[in-house]
């Protein structure tokens, strides 16, 4: 596969802390005490791609980019 490497970000101005991202991709996102999602692995392995894509679609605030 020659997919580009993942580069995951969460826009904190958009995030509403619903936490769906953490539930589908717990290796990549963690909901902090500040009620915002934090990216704990900005460049996750290719095996996380599907989970990150699903997190992007599920995110009600469309705060995730990758």
């Amino acid at each position: 596969m020659n997919e580009e490497q993942l580069h995951v970000t969460v826009d904190h101005l958009q995030c509403q802390g619903v936490g769906y991202c953490e539930r589908v991709a717990p290796r990549v996102f963690r909901l902090g005490d500040d009620a915002l999602s934090h990216v704990i692995d900005k460049h996750p392995p290719e095996s996380e791609r599907e989970a990150v894509e699903e997190a992007e679609t599920l995110c009600p605030s469309r705060a995730i980019r990758y």
Binding site: Q16, V18, Y20, P60, S61, R62
Partner: peptide, 28 residues
């Protein structure tokens, strides 16, 4: 700043409106 311009109109938490992007669009 720090909140959505429509406030709580689409709710919040797990039941937050699933159709919001249809209504307000995707792009900021």
């Amino acid at each position: 700043s720090s909140v959505k311009p429509w406030g709580l109109t689409f709710g919040g938490g797990e039941h937050i409106c699933i159709g919001r992007t249809l209504v307000t669009g995707l792009s900021a």
